[in-house]
């Protein structure tokens, strides 16, 4: 079953609630009053032009960067300003825009490291399953830094799978990868949804967004400018202007 076929709307209380979130770097307002909800078991797409604040929002939610003000509630816990490892232990996992490899460790060790804190029982079997799911068995003993760019994206995604998280943030996980690798990732996302995982994904590939996501959140200049199903979003004139520019 493809991710698109398995689409269901988020149900019940949202797993992620963000309210009036602000973060600035010097004079730049990277995130400027963002509010959004992500429902349980939902696959939400976060789109917007470069510099619109998407990755900073991920950094704020995952604890990599501390917000200036605002609220972030994840699975009933207030997590704004908490340390990244504490948030991860609550069941949130993420990938980075540029793959964050443990370069000097093997592919298998990279996966096992993701289970080292809190999910160790059966980790070796899960690592083998993840290698099979992502078709990385043939490079299991290779160093992570020796992988191709696409394989590194797969491996980082594999670490997220190993975390058994309830909310996953994917930052351009298919950017610049071969269509075969994109297909593997899309199928893996569908498997995650079947397990009940919620996914928030930053993506520039509109084809993938349309096929995978239940709902789209559009950001521009650090703010959410639109939200809704894909077909509504592409008819939204403000979104079109954000992507294509305003007519002169």
């Amino acid at each position: 079953m493809s991710a698109a076929e398995g689409k269901t709307a988020g149900t019940g209380e949202p797993i992620l609630v963000v309210r009036e979130l602000h973060c600035h770097f010097g004079g730049i307002k990277a995130v400027n009053g963002v509010s959004l909800d992500v429902g349980r078991r939902e696959i939400a797409g976060l789109i917007g032009p470069n510099g619109s604040g998407k990755s900073t929002l991920f950094n704020l939610i995952s604890g990599t960067v501390t917000p200036d003000r605002g609220q972030i509630r994840f699975d009933g816990h207030e997590i704004g300003g908490r340390k990244a490892h504490a948030i991860a232990r609550l069941g949130l996992a993420r990938t980075f825009q540029i793959p964050a490899m443990f370069d000097n460790m093997s592919v298998t060790e990279n996966l096992l490291a993701a289970a080292a804190e809190g999910h160790w029982q059966g980790a070796r079997e899960r690592a083998a399953d993840t290698l099979a799911l992502l078709k990385l068995e043939h490079v299991a003993d290779n160093r992570a830094s020796d992988l191709s760019g696409g394989q590194q994206k797969l491996l980082e995604f594999g670490r997220v799978v190993m975390r058994q998280a309830s909310l996953i943030l994917l930052d351009e996980v298919t950017a610049g990868v071969h269509p075969n690798i994109r297909k593997i990732i899309v199928e893996a996302i569908a498997r995650l949804r079947e397990r009940g995982t919620t996914v928030l994904v930053i993506e520039h590939d509109m084809e993938m967004v349309r096929n995978v996501c239940d709902r789209i959140i559009v950001m521009d200049a650090g703010r959410v400018v639109a939200t809704g199903p894909f077909n509504n979003i592409v008819r939204n004139s403000e979104v079109m202007q954000t992507y294509l520019g305003r007519p002169q």
Binding site: S62, G63, T64, K83, A84, H85, A86, A88, R89, A93, R94, F96, A100, M101, F102, D103, N104, M105, E109, L112, A113, A114, A115, A116, E117, G118, W120, A123, R159, R163
Partner: peptide, 23 residues
Amino acid sequence: RFGLKVKALRDHEPAAEAIGINT
């Protein structure tokens, strides 16, 4: 797994934090 945590933080500390390791 302690060794895995140590080597993970050596190679990429933010990523190690992101998988729950109290670096």
